[in-house]
Design a protein around this nucleic acid. Structure first.
Lengths: 208, 208
DNA sequence: ATGCTATCGCTACATGTGTAGTTTTAGTGA
DNA sequence: TCACTAAAACTACACATGTAGCGATAGCAT
């Protein structure tokens, strides 16, 4: 799932300032630690995720993990960074409503099925690194989704002058609110309901 | 701000099962601890809030605080419980839009000005007590706000058959999303913008 | 090959979080 | 006033979290 890394690459090593010695050992350590963190998260959940557990599981020493990632939030930020497909493109179903439904189904899937997303949200309240990573991720996604709105305007579905960000947030926020903050039971119809409402509102000229 | 307690009272003492000896000392301890927790929160923020700090600040022994409140989330749940005015009524401005704007301004105020709300949200990811308290609080508020929707239907502003909860969540969720999850800079126009959009959507027949 | 040094592993320590068991204090009712 | 006992204080412990310093290892350039 991770994007293949071009030979010429931005400094990266994300967790640290720069990789001044990116050779085999450091890379292997990073690999083992991130794998262990993800496995632990999947198998035993966010509450079980501690630096110590990950260190033991990966066979890397505690202090090394603390040094490179600082806290669980840093670990998760790096896991997300690695897992996020840079080539992600917003859906293009031919209608605003269809696109929003697809986006929402993805969000719903991430919030109910992907432990990394939920864990990172939880961690973002305790770790600056996690908060930053999460914000960057969302900013990027909302930016890319601007296309959805532009195409809808081009098709004449909705009036021009609509604030894409406001529309997109209106279309997704109720999902986060229900599942993350209110912790309601997941309802498979919810993504579609919410998306339809937002599309209706946009057609009626809201978000202008 | 706390509701005056009737002489005949439900078991209460909220944090514990029941108060079998609600006499002066226990009450005084609770008072000192909750005051200390709130003061610490206001002065030094959520990150500084630990059982130990609150215990020292209140002059109550650590183990006592641990026994009665268990964790910081329990402490915050009790603080919220005490601070929430049971007599809260939803606004009644005469229009759906006006009511939603008022609600949103309240939410906005709580999220930008009241450390207890934000702290409780943060704590809800670490403490079952905090999560439960928060959900109860929100459930209660959304229930009460049903009146807003019913009155709008009665006035003929919006079609009957609208799902009040869905409308109310659509009207408030973007605020939580922006301020809590995305941590955007507070924008004083946001409450009104979001409320107007939701009202427009409702008039256009969304949320049905 | 070989020296340089970034990075890792190790030890030791400091502090934070939470629990168990016991003693003391002070409401409560007779 | 005084015995009863709920609840607080105290002691002691167990484990989690996080940091400092130092010696060992192994990429990297020559």
């Amino acid at each position: 799932m991770a994007s293949p890394r071009p030979t010429s690459e931005l400094p990266d090593d994300s967790a640290t300032d720069r990789a001044r010695r990116p050779g085999g050992r450091s890379a292997a350590v990073r690999r083992r630690v991130l794998d262990a963190a993800l496995a632990q998260l999947v198998q035993h959940g966010y509450d079980s995720l501690s630096i110590d557990v990950v260190a033991e599981r990966s066979g890397v020493h505690r202090t090394t993990v603390y040094r490179r990632w600082r806290d669980v939030g840093g670990l998760l930020a790096d896991v997300l960074h690695e897992a996020s497909v840079d080539a992600w493109r917003p859906p293009d179903t031919g209608s605003l409503e269809g696109d929003l439904v697809e986006v929402n189904q993805e969000v719903h899937g991430a919030l109910t099925g992907d432990p990394v997303t939920v864990a990172l949200i939880a961690a973002s309240f305790r770790s600056g690194q996690a908060a930053t990573a999460l914000r960057a991720f969302w900013t990027d996604r909302y930016d890319r989704c601007t296309d959805i709105v532009r195409r809808a305007v081009d098709r004449g579905e909705i009036p021009a002058g609509i604030d894409a960000r406001r529309l997109l947030i209106a279309a997704t926020a109720p999902l986060y609110h229900e599942l993350v903050l209110l912790r309601s039971a997941p309802d498979p119809r919810l993504p579609e309901q919410v998306a339809r409402s937002a599309a209706t509102a946009a057609r009626a000229g809201a978000y202008g």
